[in-house]
Design a protein around this nucleic acid. Structure first.
Lengths: 137, 137
DNA sequence: CAGTATCCTTAATGATACTG
DNA sequence: CAGTATCATTAAGGATACTG
């Protein structure tokens, strides 16, 4: 996901190159665009969770992907990981303050989705009917 | 990106299955998470654009990916495509009203990114230093 | 319980050539 | 100009087995 691109900022649209690899919005999209991060963040928005709890709360996620997703969120400073040296071991995951602020964004995303879901579905049905046998889906 | 998952709605967190394949937020994330859609939408937020204009405005995008991105956005009802039967042919792309409403979301994304970019960068550097030779990046 | 390590499949993207 | 078609490459994700 590295590329020269234009980027919207609070007041204006600016252009930036990929020489720095960190135009900003891409950092968020990388984490928001993947298959599981948002779901994990949504679950953690409810409070502290342990590894197995998360796996049960996000049906379909593999152990491997849960681990990867958690590590990346931790690396980005969005969640914290606390190991309790018990037997068997317990590891607790929690949103950081940065992570919590992300939930507002996710909420906005969900609101927009809810609002336009019907229209998008309708548009797709019409497009699919007008373009039978298309390969873009 | 199809999977059973929990979903945030305006007021509550609900669980839904993938039997219907349209939990809502996934539809947005599919388009927001891919590599080019947001960049194309941002460019179209400025006004009507033709194919070549878009390709120049989004450096790095291939002809193929621009075509695919535009088709998918069109299928979702986010942009309109108008063919003018001139020689050589001209095709105009514009945001629909649904597409325009998406730009608010993108703006929110960009704002959040700008606000937390430094913190994320810092977190990553620290994590990378604490975890040398990790394979998650 | 909370992971790692491997191997494998599929989806996404890229490069290039060609066309109405 | 605005695409399509084809092939190659890469990244994301999944399945399974194993471990401290």
């Amino acid at each position: 996901m590295s590329v020269r691109h234009t980027e919207v900022t609070s007041g204006s649209v600016v252009t930036c190159g990929d020489e720095h690899e960190d135009c900003g919005i891409r950092e968020v999209l990388d984490r928001i665009g993947d298959k599981w991060s948002v779901l994990v963040v949504v679950e953690l928005a409810q409070g502290m969770r342990r590894f197995r709890q998360l796996q049960r709360a996000v049906p379909g996620i593999s152990q491997r992907m849960l681990t990867l997703t958690l590590r990346r969120l931790e690396r980005d400073g969005l969640i914290s990981r606390t190991v309790r040296p018990t037997v068997p071991p317990q590891v607790e995951y929690e949103l950081t303050s940065t992570g919590h602020s992300l939930t507002h964004l996710v909420r906005a995303l969900a609101d927009w989705s809810a609002e336009h879901r019907a229209a998008i579905g309708q548009a797709r049905r019409e497009w699919d009917e007008a373009n039978p046998g298309s390969s873009i889906r």
